[in-house]
Design a protein around this nucleic acid. Sequence first.
DNA 1: TTGAGTAGTCATAAAAATCTGACTTATTTT
DNA 2: AAAATAAGTCAGATTTTTATGACTACTCAA
Lengths: 103, 103
Amino acid sequence: MTTQIAMEEKETCPAQALLKMLSGKWKPEIFRLAMNGPLRFSGLLREIRGANKQSLSVALKELEETGLLEKTTIKIKPLHIEYYLTNRGRTFIPVLQQLEHLG
Amino acid sequence: MTTQIAMEEKETCPAQALLKMLSGKWKPEIFRLAMNGPLRFSGLLREIRGANKQSLSVALKELEETGLLEKTTIKIKPLHIEYYLTNRGRTFIPVLQQLEHLG
DNA sequence: TTGAGTAGTCATAAAAATCTGACTTATTTT
DNA sequence: AAAATAAGTCAGATTTTTATGACTACTCAA
């Protein structure tokens, strides 16, 4: 029996991993909306024209995994699930603002 | 005869297009190296471990098209082609620095 | 109990990004 | 003349990302 160890490509560019956290077709838009307040799945689906469930779901999951978003269940009926920026996530706001500035 | 017009998805997130200019497997690394001085193709191929010609070529072309890099022919023998950051490109440096800071 | 809303997952398909290896063109060195 | 270096291009293959439509599970209102 042999054990395969996936050789991770080690990052040489420090900004790369951070950029990746925000890159993708829907992540910047999701992030921007999250800056204005908590998000719900159905709301995103309505507000982001052209996005589909699967891709939003994947994007939200990745934003959670990288610690930029968290979700919580709101226990009013009907139950809602809200995604909101973490403190870590908020540290990225200036980067986005600076980018917009360069636009 | 009909004319097909590709319906461009209009950006709703202002930072998205800017982020895209820097995203991809090799662009952040290329950009970072360009910050330290002009680049040559063969040099990149040597310095960026794991990168292949084709991908670097595509990345360089996109960085040119978005106006972050320019290239010039150095007329010493043997002839060299150098890629360097444009003024526009330099305006992205603070963004990268800020990202590194968040690392 | 039927239908609507919310929040997804799943298998599969299509599109986009990246990789591989062979080839090109021009100059330079041996 | 042959081999080496520089800067790529090209066709085709593989991988990753994104999209589609059907389906699940739970709650609520009529």
